[in-house]
Computed example of a mutant assay.
Amino acid sequence: MKLGFNQATTLENSNLATDLELCERHGYDYIEIRTMDKLPEYLEQYSLQRLSAYFQENHIKPYALNALVYFNNRSEDEYQQLLKEFKQMLEYAKELQVPYIVVVPLVTKEKILKKDIKASSVAVLHELAELAAPYGVKLAVEFVGHPDCTINTFEQAYDIVQKVDNPNVGLVLDCFHFHAMNSSIEALRQADISKVFILHMDDTEDFPIGSLVDEDRVWPGQGVIDLEGILSVLKESGFDGPATVELFRPEYYEMKAEDVIKKAKETTAEVVSKYL
């Protein structure tokens, strides 16, 4: 099993250039690049061509651009801005040879009917997939395990992806989000695991379902998520993608970035190696 690093894990105590150096040093195979902050910050000082050369010259490779946020149920003006952002991400993906773009559903206090969420999501994913196809880029939908997210369970996200029925549209399975709104292990077992494009590894403190937030994440294996159940199903189903650690823990941002990157790899590898 290969290991990846999501830049959220060092969001407040590092940058892209440093993350790359440290991840290369500690033997990570992949990195998920944050396009909302870390990539623009990098490009203020360096060129995209320099970043591409780094990947060509080193072991670590880019696995995903993370993320196009709030893709569904937008106003026309908001959607046109979203398309503009997505087209720029496709150009980044082309230059850097990134295979996936993560797309995140709308988070809102507004109550939207599930049928309207599904209709919008399917239509948008169809269009985005058509735009991405010439670039060889696939879309990974990341449901967010919080009541305010319009797509917040594995079952709901999987149903939408099945409706889209495009080989270039799949899912991010984030263990925290899977646990946070009580997604079903049985639903995961019944699913076509080839639709799981990206696996995010994390764990969480034991707060009630529906109240969890990203900052509650802890090192993999040191919380209450049924990682054994999730990973056992993935193993049985033949999942062979990398496992990417993604944490948003405030205490970890107070640590040295290298200590976080090292600890994140150790804890993730310890958990994942038992199954994948």
Results as ranks from 00 to 15, higher is better:
Ile160Leu: 12
Asp165Thr: 00
Val144Pro: 04
Lys262His: 13
Tyr30Glu: 07
Glu215Gln: 14
Thr268Glu: 11
Val271Ile: 12
Leu247Arg: 03
Ala269Tyr: 06
Gln162Gly: 11
Gln156Gly: 05
Val124Gly: 03
Phe178Tyr: 08
Lys262Thr: 14
Ser184Lys: 14
Val124Thr: 12
Val107Trp: 01
Gln88Pro: 00
Val245Cys: 11
Tyr46Ser: 14
Pro40Cys: 09
Leu139Pro: 01
Asp240Tyr: 10
Leu16Cys: 07
Ser211Leu: 12
Gly145Val: 00
Phe178Met: 03
Asp259Trp: 11
Arg189Asn: 15
Phe86Met: 04
Gln49Ala: 14
Pro62Glu: 01
Glu76His: 09
Ala132Val: 02
Leu82Asn: 05
Phe5Trp: 00
Pro250Lys: 05
Leu39Ala: 09
Glu258Leu: 08
Glu205Ile: 15
Glu251Cys: 06
Trp219Phe: 13
Gln49Arg: 12
Asn6Trp: 01
His146Ile: 14
Lys195Gly: 05
Leu90Thr: 04
Gly223His: 02
Val122Met: 05
Glu110Asn: 12
Ala257Met: 09
Met181Leu: 13
His59Gly: 12
Glu254Thr: 14
Gly221Trp: 01
Val196Lys: 03
Val245Lys: 09
Leu22Tyr: 06
Glu127Asp: 13
Gly223Ala: 07
Glu21Lys: 15
Tyr275Leu: 07
Ala123Val: 02
Leu106Gly: 05
Glu95Asp: 11
Ile160His: 10
Ile261His: 04
Phe248Arg: 10
Lys263Glu: 12
Val213Thr: 13
Phe248Leu: 14
Thr10Ile: 10
Arg249Val: 00
Val260His: 04
Ala67Val: 09
Phe178His: 01
Pro250Gln: 05
Val260Arg: 02
Ile261Ser: 01
Leu139Thr: 02
Ala257Leu: 09
Pro167Ile: 05
Leu48Pro: 05
Tyr135Thr: 04
Pro134Leu: 06
Leu51Tyr: 00
Ala157Val: 04
Gln80Met: 14
Asp77Cys: 01
Glu21Gly: 03
Val169Met: 02
